[in-house]
Design a protein around this nucleic acid. Structure first.
Lengths: 400, 400
DNA sequence: CGCAAAGTTAGGCATCTTTACTAACTAACC
DNA sequence: GGTTAGTTAGTAAAGATGCCTAACTTTGCG
């Protein structure tokens, strides 16, 4: 049952205080009086809470506003102090790690990246080094840091802060939260990179303020983050959103030359992931050896060739996009989101294939939803990780 | 922002009261003292709240329990009074309407059904008649009724209580809540029949107490209800769970003899819905006209024939089950539920095909989940509708 | 000056908690 | 068996905290 009873009135006060803070944060410069109005709290109560929030530096007074039309005393404008605390966000990728410091508005004060180390020990060491640099760059002390969020490329138990399985890093059951908290003097939160990304997009990106969002990320692998009723949905065993395993073509799945996948790669991933694209391309090339492809190439190259007019590459990508279209349509049928975001490396070519995906959706889903590329670029992971901390932290900012 | 401020302390008390009530409800016979312990409330507070709850008849004292091992005064055992109020549940189907009255434990006190009228007016009239009979049967007054839940076979806006689209009833934008509330003196809540069903199964059925549940219902059409983080998920525009539109076979979807569906029927529905099964069977029979099938038959007949060993029927159903298996696997990949329930007419033959569905899941989903038939039978809809009311009602019972 | 709006002060009410108490029961000892 | 010590359930009274209302001060406009 675990009742969060701050046993009584303290809880109520805390809640009201948060409401006041949130109100000021959202409604921009605003007077005590108006806050009282909006929250249906009495003026004295608001004044008292504001007093405390000023004391704690969450709010600041910014001189008088203009008086009302009918005369009267000028209001004292209150503003949220977005520099009351700072949060560090880490985007831990398979090849590089990007770290950044944001203020509470999501403004990036400093960011940097370094190559991913294969050894966990040296990775953490490099991370510590990097974070200290960032602190210096932003002229901040550890005291100014509210917490640190990390997006990891794999299934993650956010409660215990354990990365269950991250193939690209070769991690299994790695207690990242614990390890990181031993290294830094602030709380650390860990989550799946795709989950983190969807948080970032909802905070400051293409899904700003939306409560029902699906983000499909296509890079080396294929992942999917879901915001449902305004909250991240992680599933019963942290495995929700494994869209890489969606089967969009039974016939192929059954008759596959390969045995059923299940070892790290899913059906969809075989076709639309980076590795899958390369493989399909190679398959295609077998039949027409006169092609201009080099012996080794990447998915990116396939895209390039297709844009340059290579028929075979175009054919491969046609199929890829078709799969993505059906995957998106299926997601819409099931989740009915307000928007579907496409992220990952592939999103750079978005305008090229977006119309076709939309067509598929229109033809096969019962309702529609706009499909857009993610709006945040290289800092998406960082900002998302910051948002993770802001949403989950027990601080005054926590939603209620 | 709309802050639910019961402005202050009254809210807190209300909340504590609900906690006490819920605690007693869940922890069975329990003493004031232990409630105080569990909720971390002081004994006087609990006593006061219990006093009120006794007064209001939500609780009852049931004589002394046994004293502890170390001696001491015998506790006065408290019990939830499941007859403090009653709820009416309506399962509105395409061919018949089933109505029932439950107490707060979900115990069915009376139930009855009548054929669905095509005219809305006469349908409501028949409903009123029926409900009055039920009240008599259970010897209850309208005052004893907390509310009424209705499960409707179509997309439903639960906020406004409007059935947006229910093909089998030929309803569009029908304000059922409003109409019903004009007829009855208690609040009415309306939701999709599948949503209602999953609530019922979570309350008293195969998903008891689970927070992540997917229910796939296969009857005339194909629907899907989802419980996510313990809550019903309805989507951004009440269209979540339209699994009938899931495409599990791109090739077939694209090359289909028919144009893209979109007019009321989805891809999956074409194959696994009742109408779809019949059509596939007819298709199959064309090729072997020596069959024993009558001119007119139903999906049920196909099942029967298949069980009796008819090869063609078996082949048709094989494909149906294959589709269902992949649909279930896809749902698991995306939602990662604790359990997948199969409901609707098809669930009667569950043991026959369940193993094959499980095999498909094992082969193609990244994680597993048990697949079970729904546990509640003819009263699933009724009980679910009751549960809907209990969960959403603003009464003392509301979760917080 | 008179009015109006912002913000503060003082007093009152509701709720919870703490502390101290009574009631009731067990165990154990004489 | 009867008495006493120890334990637990529940109640009563007093204290703390938070909110609200009402009255007040401050500040600005006409």
């Amino acid at each position: 049952m675990k009742s969060n009873h701050k046993s009584g009135t303290a809880f109520m006060k805390e809640k009201n205080k948060r409401c006041v803070l949130r109100c000021v944060k959202e409604k921009g410069p605003i007077s005590r009086s108006e806050v009282a109005d909006q929250l249906q709290l009495s003026k004295p109560t608001v004044s008292a809470l504001v007093e405390e929030l000023l004391q704690e530096n969450w709010l600041k007074e910014v001189g008088p506003g203009s008086a009302g039309l009918a005369g009267g005393r000028k209001p004292i404008q209150l503003l949220f102090n977005s520099r009351a605390a700072h949060v560090i966000g880490i985007d831990m990728g398979g090849t590089k790690v990007r770290a950044g410091i944001c203020d509470l508005d999501g403004q990036l004060l400093a960011a940097d990246e370094f190559p991913t180390q294969t050894q966990k020990k040296s990775l953490l060491k490099a991370l510590k080094q990097n974070v200290e640099n960032l602190l210096n760059q932003a002229s901040l002390n550890p005291d100014d840091i509210l917490g640190m969020g990390i997006g990891a490329p794999g299934m993650t138990d956010t409660e215990r802060g354990v990365v269950i399985d991250a193939p690209s890093l070769n991690w299994t059951q790695y207690p990242l939260k614990k390890e990181a908290e031993a290294l830094f003097p602030w709380p650390v939160m860990v989550d799946n990179d795709v989950n983190v990304a969807v948080l970032g997009e909802q905070w400051l990106g293409a899904a700003k303020g939306m409560d029902h969002v699906v983000l499909i990320s296509i890079g080396t692998g294929v992942g999917c983050g879901m915001l449902i009723n305004g909250q991240l949905y992680r599933g019963a065993t942290w495995a929700a959103g494994e869209i890489g395993y969606m089967v969009t073509d039974m016939a192929k799945a059954r008759c596959a030359d390969l045995p059923p996948p299940h070892e790290g790669y899913g059906f969809l991933e075989q076709y639309v992931g980076g590795a899958g694209i390369v493989q399909s391309m190679k398959q295609e090339l077998k039949d027409q050896p006169e092609s201009l492809f080099p012996n080794h190439f990447s998915a990116k190259d396939v895209f390039q060739k297709a844009k340059d007019g290579d028929r075979a590459a175009g054919k491969v990508l046609d199929e890829v996009i078709d799969h993505i279209g059906f995957a998106a349509a299926n997601m819409i049928s099931i989740i009915n989101p307000e928007v579907v975001l496409l992220g990952g490396g592939i999103s750079r070519s978005a305008d090229w294939f977006l119309p076709r995906i939309q067509k598929t959706i229109q033809d096969f889903a019962p309702v529609s939803a706009p499909v857009l590329p993610t709006a945040l670029r290289e800092n998406l992971g960082v900002v998302g990780a910051v948002s993770l901390v802001l949403r989950e932290t027990e601080s005054v900012l926590k939603e209620l």
